[in-house]
Design a protein around this nucleic acid. Structure first.
Lengths: 198, 198
DNA sequence: CGGTTGAGTAAGTATCTGCTTACAGTATTA
DNA sequence: TAATACTGTAAGCAGATACTTACTCAACCG
């Protein structure tokens, strides 16, 4: 019984390349030929790893989420005097969307009539929002809350903040400094119910 | 010299249909054949009205912006005791994104390497943000401001709020009531610097 | 070592897509 | 009414695209 199956390893090896392609080009413009080119293989090899192009895309969505979670986890593991939420805000204000997290979401949002992509996307968003909500709740337990909206609500607003920050960055509508200011000011307002600088 | 040129009228007549198609399907999936079908004409007729598919899309972006502005203008013309910003927030909390405003933006964001689409999109976003900023400033002049972020900053946050509200709606992640609550709570927090319900 | 099976190459196919061309009909004005 | 510019129809083209097929090679384990 010869040659062990390396499908799983190969998938893991190519997935970052695939995800990056989808993030850069969107769903439609990412042709299977282009994917193969970037991966340095032929098309049919991709088709042995995933049943079709859609599956490649859904795998990419999952990868992007895992990637973000891994970064956050590293961030949260560090013990500092700032709360987790504070550290997350500080981090995102500087490195937000560097990998192209949101671009893949936008690509997916253009395919929302496909039930599988839609489900993958909804699942990702739900987890994302829930994660943020937990951090906000933890922050408040530690630091108190003045007159801020409920953690659930605030979490959605933070996600929105991240989204618009990324769009503005993509379209070069705000400078890095402005984006950072946006995050810290509104972020804190949502966290604690008052704005620091004013 | 026979038959007056009706190109302008025809464009105006078909543009809503074109815009809706792009909003529903995105850029790539909206084929010129599909556009022609929905418009009830042949493809080459569209090509007499616009030089290429890209021009149709850019026209659609403009249309969507004009549409929003028209709705807001009607809203602002009414003289009521609520400030313009309050009325805008109240309106958006209920009808937000009904036409598909954001879907066309997402479609465009997938083509951000095309300089023309990118410019059209950036222009629209800039106007959008500026409009919101003016309303916020006007509101504060009338009602005062407690400890809220600068109008410029708050305006970006409001745009982000609108964006995430639309995504969440699209993916059925929040109920209409929740979305409305999100708008009124965070909206007021951004406007005036304190949350009403807490 | 030898055969089974996974990994790679190359070429192809049916369909679609943006866009064009050639031509016929018709409304308008001089 | 006659010339003409506009409006519509039908067909098609070159290139792209998702996915497949047929085949070769070599790695592995008994």
């Amino acid at each position: 019984m010869p040659r062990p199956n390396k499908t799983v390893e190969k998938r893991r090896e190519l997935l970052p390349v695939v995800a990056r392609a989808f993030a850069e080009l969107g769903f439609r413009r990412t042709t299977t030929a282009e994917l193969a080119r970037r991966c340095g293989v032929r098309e049919n090899i991709l088709y042995r790893l995933w049943p079709d192009k859609k599956a490649m895309f859904i795998a990419a969505i999952g990868y992007v989420y895992d990637q973000s979670v891994a970064i956050w986890a590293r961030l949260l593991a560090r013990q500092e005097q700032a709360t987790a939420a504070e550290r997350l805000l500080a981090y995102e204000s500087q490195h937000h969307g560097e990998f192209g997290h949101y671009r893949i979401v936008f690509a997916g949002l253009n395919e929302t009539d496909d039930p599988d992509i839609r489900a993958a996307l909804a699942d990702m968003y739900r987890r994302f929002q829930r994660f943020v909500e937990e951090q906000i709740a933890a922050h408040r337990a530690q630091r108190g809350r003045h007159a801020a909206p409920a953690a659930h609500t605030a979490a959605w607003a933070v996600v929105g903040l991240g989204t618009v920050a990324n769009i503005a960055r993509e379209l070069e509508l705000v400078s890095d400094a402005e984006r950072s200011h946006l995050f810290s000011t509104v972020g804190r307002l949502l966290l604690e119910g008052y704005a620091p600088g004013s």
